[in-house]
Structures are given as C-alpha cells and as structure tokens.
Design a protein around this nucleic acid. Structure first.
Lengths: 334, 334
DNA sequence: TCCTTTTTAGAAAACCTTTTCAAGGTGATT
DNA sequence: AATCACCTTGAAAAGGTTTTCTAAAAAGGA
C-alpha cells in the first residue's frame, strides 16, 4: 500500500496537520519537528495523493491538448513547446490524438471533463459548434493554437496564414515564375485553408497573374492526397513551373509525383512548402518553405491558457506570431 | 461551479446513493427514478468527479507513457497503438516526452506517482538502475516496449532485433554486395544497438564476409549524426556498395550524404533502413527497410500493462512480435 | 509574578464519490 | 392473516488531504 500522510505522521510522531504544514508552509513548523517529518517523507518515499488534493483545490494542475494527427511532425513541435511550458508552470499534460475523428474528439473532451483538467488547448482544427457547445457545457476554459474562430470569441495563438501564403507566392513570382499552381487544404475541414488561399489570390492579383487563379487542387492533409492532387494539377496544367504547397508534406508529395514523372525539382518546377518541419531539411531536395515558430506556438498556447486560468482573462485575445520564408533547394529562378 | 452528485440528487429528488447507483448499477433502481436521474444528469451535464472516485477506487484509470523523442515518427505509431488500446480498455493516457534527458525522465516518474497513474509503459530506452529503483520505490507497475532488460525481470514487448538486423544484412548479401557498411546506434545509450550489431556480425560470419566487420560507424539517433557517420564511413571505406542503417532516419541521412557526394542510390550504393516509418515511403528513393509492427507494439504494451494490473502477473514475460523486410527503391542487385 | 500576545500544533470539517448496512415496503407463500 | 424473502432506498462511513478553529505553550511586557 502506498504510504499516506498518516504513516508519515506516525513515523515522525506528529499530527497529520503538521505533516501537511511541512509540505505547504514549512516556516510555521519548528525545525526539530520539521526535520523529523522531512526524514519520514524521504524514507517512506511519500508522495501526496493527487486525488485528495484535487478534491480540495478543485484543480488538477493538468492541461489537456487535442491534436488532430500525431503522425504529423508539426504536432511534435507543438507538443514539445507546450510540455516545456507546462513544466515551467507546474502543470502536467494530457495529450490526445483525435485522428480527425469527431466522435473521438468529443469523447476525449468527456475524459478531460471527468479528469477535471484545468484547461484545454485545441490545436489546428476547426472549432465546430458541437465542440464549442460541449466545451462550454463542461465549463473548461480553452484556447486555440494554429487556429482561430470567427464565430466564437476564443483566445488563440497562430501565425498570419494569409500573409505567409502571400509571401510564399510573392517569392515564386519574384523568381520569375508566371505559371503558378497551388495545392491547398480543403476549405471545409481545415482552418488555414481559406486564409492561405486568400494569400495566394492576393499575390496573383497584385502582380497581374490572375490567369493562375484556377490552378488549384485541394488535398486532405496527407502525402498521398497531395501526390494525387499534383497529378491532377499537372495533368490539367502541364505548363506550371512553380507550385505553392500549404504544407511540407504536400510539397513532398508534389515533388515525389514530379520525380515519378521525371520532372526535375527545382530545375523544371519550383516547389515551396509550409511549416518547416524537421523533415524539410531531410528531404531531397531540401524544401524551400514558410517556417512557423512551431515550438513557440505550443509554448505560448500553454502560457495563454495559464493566463486565462489564473487571471480569468487574457491580455491579447488573438495573438499572431512571426513566420519566415526559408529558401533551400526546392526553388529556383525561372 | 461544476455540478456535483448532490445537485443531481436534488434535482431528481432522490438521495445521492440513488444517483450513484444509476451510474454504476442502473438495474437496481426503479425505472421512474432512474429516468428522473438520467434526465437531471443530462440537463446539468454532470460528470462524476474523478478525484473522489480515485480516492475510493485507489485507481486513476490512467496509464503513463514515457518516450525518448516525440520528434521521431516511430513514437507516433507507438502512441497511436497505445491510445487505441487505452480507449478499448478504459484508460486515459498521459504521454511524456523525455528528450532523452535523465533528470526530466525522473521528474516525470514523480509526476506519474503523484497523479497515481496505474501503470507505466517505458519506450525504447535503456532501463538504468536509477529508473528501476525509482519505479519500484513508487510501487508503480511498468512494462517496456521496444526495449528489454537483462538485469531486471520486467515484462516487455519488442521485435527480435538481432534477427531483424541479420535479415536486413543477409538481404544485402544475397543481392550480391560484398562491401557492406553499417550505421548503428551507440551501444551505451541505446537498447537495440547491441543486438542489431550482433545480427550484422552474424550475417557477415555466416557468409564469409568478415572483412566488413570494421565498417561500422555509430550515430546518435538523429539524421544529422547519421549524415556525419556516413561521411566518415565512406571516407574511410570508399568502396562500400551497401549500407545497413539501424533506423530509417539514418538511412535518410546516409542517402542525403551520398546524394551530396553525387553517389547514386541505389545505382551505386544500396541502403536499407529500419522501422518502416511513414517517411520511408515519402522519401526519394522510397526506402527498403525492416518493418516493425509499431502500432501493434504500442497496442500490445497497453494490453500487457493492463494484464499486469488486473491479474498481478503476465503470461509471457518477454514477448516478441514479427518484423518483415520490405523491399522498395533504395536497394538493388550488385 | 501575572497578564497579554504570539507561536506552534492538534482536532475536526470539508471536498465528492462509492459502498455497506439497515430499514421500509412489496409481493408471495403458507 | 402472518411470515418470509426480496427489492428499493437512504443514511453514514470511508478514502487522503488541506484548512479553519481552538487550545496549549512560549515569549514578552508591566
């Protein structure tokens, strides 16, 4: 049986109140007793019971993180950042991978509710009304990371997807490309799909390249879909010389397709990705891409939910972090 | 304030015992009251408090998972498998990423202890005495996944690394390669380093290729290290035509190096990886590799800790799962 | 020395749930 | 009609901790 505060009290020959005080307000206990208690705690390897504590504090000192796809390296970075922040702030972290499954997500919220997590970070996914209703029903505060909501007024941390996409496309244009395609996220099940599309469109408009407006295919988060989308794009528009991909994984899928078609990247076609995953430097060719401050996004999200929990509100509701274009080997002047 | 069982009882005009019974043994409550209670639960969005429950059951219905590197896609698979098993078995999962840091790992064990996790799965890492001592000190049962311990008698689930490595090297030999190198894990901070090395050596011995015995460089888990190791390997032994890499990430590092040196894979050098990560089909060329049943390893690990928790012991202590060589594009006949 | 103030420590209540125990009520059996 | 068994329900204890309240002891002042 795990030792309880009673066992410690008995061994140190004091009351349980004194033991509790040694742990929570040591200065109120005389040194001799304090030392006896500390010694007893160590020999018994006593660890206070989080259940009993939680019952009193009505806090679990635990945060929940909901991510859509653990096999996407993007979230590894978010997790690392968030976990580091949690350590700093004294929280434990409960990570749940929804595999983009609504039912599963909803049942994870139930689990969070039951486990009384103090707050939830919701990553990169559309905040559907069902989610929102459930979350507020559970009275669990939450923030969004790499996401936002126009419908509801929820704190969030993200980059400016529209500007980032614009920057990427502008870069391709300034490289001299005139025939530019895009592989984007479906608009109905992604949060960054529309703004990145908007950025693409704005760049085309600004540089008088409206004839590319149709050269878009949408894919569903994964390599294989991007490969397929690239196939459709290049079958329909064989004269494309540059592709803006809204994810590094899409860029890899596109490049793989081009490779299979014996089209050289960046010799014949330039490709720029998005995210700057660790993979983007491992891939051949190394990807030109928009770098997101992934780790920092996770870190800030944790800080933000902490701010919300401890002060009841957040200073800046919609927080933007900086992106950066990183030029590597998958792009070249036309 | 979150509603408690009292609020439900009051709304349904029954005692709290009845509410509890509706949740835990519905058939013992007459239908009319039961329905009233169920209705009250729904309108209040009542969720029983896991703290109070844990206090009584002395169980948290939570498992802990310790992984060394969340940025390694290998663990994404383990997590998915384990999470699915947890859902089936009624556990929540607490994932902690140690970044291969001893201190951090130890402090995560403390956190697990305090949160009263029922059991821990320890992934792919050496079970150092400090870890072992701490774990038994906390009286938390645990199992190993993709790992084992010769020193201590701990249940584990893994593949047969020695045989898997042997199979990979044998494959290269049967392709006609005579000059074979290897990029391995350091033996002192990896669990699969030694057996995979042994498999390499056994294959060489068996086919009379002992002259390759020295053609080994060790790397430290990451792409960059493998790139560097490949550099050393090929500088020292420029006539190598095949490389056995003990991780897909090493294979990618090696291939990147060769690419930079303008050595064609598989034209001039064959490379085989290990793990069959999702990346191995995204890389160019697609990797020939040893497939581990990663998802299943995670799944089995959860089942195993559950077995240990519910029956007090485990039927097969050291469990081996099947690996499989998958031939793709990074290898070719000599 | 005696009274007041401060410091220290123990007893008990509270947090929320499950479960045991006992009691009241119903229906069936004799 | 009386007894018995069973079904249904509520009261109360238990689980481990923190915290409030109270009491005792120590320290300080007159």
């Amino acid at each position: 049986m795990k030792p309880t505060i009673r066992d410690v009290a008995k061994m140190a020959e004091v009351s349980i109140s004194t033991v509790s005080r040694v742990m929570n307000a040591p200065e109120t206990v005389v040194e001799s007793k304090r030392n006896r208690v500390i010694e007893a705690i160590q020999t018994l390897q006593y660890q206070p019971n989080a259940f009993a504590r939680g019952l009193i504090y009505k806090k679990s000192f635990t945060l929940g993180l909901l991510i859509p796809d653990i096999e996407n390296l993007y979230f590894a970075g978010v997790i690392r950042g968030m976990q580091d922040a949690c350590i700093k702030l004294g929280y434990s972290l409960m990570i749940c991978n929804t595999d983009r499954d609504k039912e599963r997500l909803l049942s994870y919220i139930d689990a969070f509710h039951e486990k009384q997590v103090d707050g939830i970070v919701f990553a990169s996914d559309v905040l559907y009304p069902e989610y929102y209703e459930k979350l507020v029903g559970c009275r669990i505060p939450f923030v969004l990371v790499s996401s936002h909501s126009d419908e509801y007024d929820i704190p969030c941390v993200e980059i400016d997807d529209e500007v980032a996409a614009y920057d990427a496309v502008k870069f391709l244009i300034e490289l001299g490309h005139k025939q530019i395609g895009m592989i984007g996220f479906n608009h109905d099940n992604s949060i960054s799909g529309p703004p990145r599309y908007d950025g693409f469109v704005r760049a085309l408009n600004e540089f008088g390249l409206e004839h590319n407006m149709e050269k878009i295919k949408f894919a569903n988060h994964r390599f294989e879909h991007a490969y397929q989308a690239a196939h459709e794009l290049f079958t329909e528009y064989p004269d494309i010389t540059a592709v803006f991909c809204v994810a590094d994984e899409f860029a890899m899928g596109t490049i793989s397709y081009l490779k299979d078609r014996n089209i050289h990247v960046p010799g014949q076609v330039s490709v720029v990705g998005f995210d700057n995953l660790r993979m983007s430097t491992m891939f051949i060719p190394k990807l030109t891409t928009i770098a997101q401050p992934i780790y920092e996004l996770g870190y800030r999200a944790a800080e933000k939910i902490h701010e919300l929990l401890s002060t009841g509100s957040v200073k800046v509701k919609r927080e933007k972090m900086e992106h950066k274009l990183i030029v590597r080997e998958s792009s070249r002047e036309k």
